[in-house]
Design a protein around this nucleic acid. Structure first.
Lengths: 223, 223
DNA sequence: AATTGTCCGTTGTTTTTCCAACAAAATGGC
DNA sequence: GCCATTTTGTTGGAAAAACAACGGACAATT
């Protein structure tokens, strides 16, 4: 088990600790009773069906949020990178059994703490508690908005509409018509819930029509 | 402008005030500086592009959360019914311009209050502030989870998979194989992003195969 | 009883997507 | 450089969905 002092990197990295100084966070760590866990590649942080009141914070490595349907198909809902919070929504919603699993895709170090410790102001009345709650609300809200935008992208009938919706959203997000996306073709196809080859075909068609230019992960929208 | 006393119905109705007594909520209302607004059918509570730090609470009537894309197509993201909170994610995420509009589909009465007043514990140090924050977190989280499940339903390739995914999710939610859904066919088709007639056809096919029974909004899954 | 409007199912045609297989291009060691 | 692997583009046939149009059932209204 590491000491709180060792997590100074995380404190700078994670938006969860925005506005909280290194000194304050030391107190915060003990106040929240943060626990440290290590996972090997393939091991599970949480299993679907279990109960938890914990919020997770990834220190190093990589995690996948997995959703299993009734027929046993598995889907990657989200990929967690260091500094990111995860599983907060399930704990805060106070549900009995979580509908997702969290698995380490790389050797990972994870911090866990009870969400009730976040919400109950501690006896020492640390001021940064309020800041932490504010940060948590902000992160949860941002995830919510991102999902909303994803729904906006995939709730379309044709591949063409989906890909154009996604690309114009990216352009608006980055305030430029020329940008890189973080997906490769296969991942983009999965994100938009279309066939990869159909996506390639449609991209080629849009290029031929002069709607856009692209090479690899770089895209450029032409008015 | 109504007085706080008049909102006792809302206080019972809305999960936002869970665990807060009528007496406490009177104090809370003034503490939050709650404002009351009325909207005619078709009028807007919020317009896409504007900035706000307000959280809304629908007292009576009905609101639609609308999303416009670059081509001017409009889509209903969500339908708000009395007692429900809305627009919280946008305020909490502290974004400059909200990506959605909120429109009254019926004559509606709405309460608005600044989210910063929720998060900053007031000078009178009312205890129910903590409860309110907890409730808000819970509601936001539940919406997040609902969206996650919607994404699970529509990120499928075939109409059959979409409708089965949706129905088995409903069954699991209500803990019974026999239940009513809140959508009519057209709305369900929009929710699943498929053609209405294709949906009807697929439902008929599933009925013929003995997978399920249905009439109007009542569905029954057969093992 | 007639009318209007809404919701739902059905059918046939057109269009699009999926699928499988392959080729070209890029990538990453060694 | 060279080979193995991954990623991307392309194509043709099979399958599925969208689309449009119609008719029946039902409820509310006159």
């Amino acid at each position: 088990m590491k000491k709180a002092e060792d997590y100074s990197l995380l404190i700078h990295l994670s938006p969860l600790f925005k506005g909280i100084s290194k000194e304050e966070s030391l107190q915060l760590f003990s106040c929240l009773e943060v626990r440290h866990h290590s996972y090997r590649k393939g091991n599970y942080v949480f299993l679907a069906g279990q109960h938890t009141t914990d919020i997770g914070l990834l220190y190093s490595g990589q995690l996948d949020i997995l959703q299993d349907d009734v027929w046993g198909n598995r889907r990657i809902l989200e990929r967690v990178t260091p500094g990111e919070m995860f599983a907060a929504a399930f704990s805060c919603a106070d549900i009995e059994r979580i509908p997702i699993s969290v698995r380490a895709t790389q050797p990972s170090e994870v911090l866990l703490f009870d969400y009730r410790r976040v919400l109950t102001t501690c006896s020492s009345a640390c001021q940064f508690h309020t800041q932490l709650i504010l940060n948590m609300l902000e992160l949860l809200s941002r995830k919510s908005i991102a999902m909303m935008e994803k729904i906006g992208n995939i709730t379309r009938h044709s591949t063409r509409e989906k890909v154009l919706s996604f690309l114009s959203q990216q352009a608006q997000l980055r305030q430029t018509q020329s940008f890189e996306i973080s997906f490769n073709r296969q991942e983009l196809a999965e994100y938009l819930a279309v066939d990869r080859s159909a996506l390639s075909t449609e991209l080629g068609r849009l290029r031929d029509e002069g709607v856009l230019r692209f090479s690899k992960n770089h895209f450029e929208l032409l008015s």
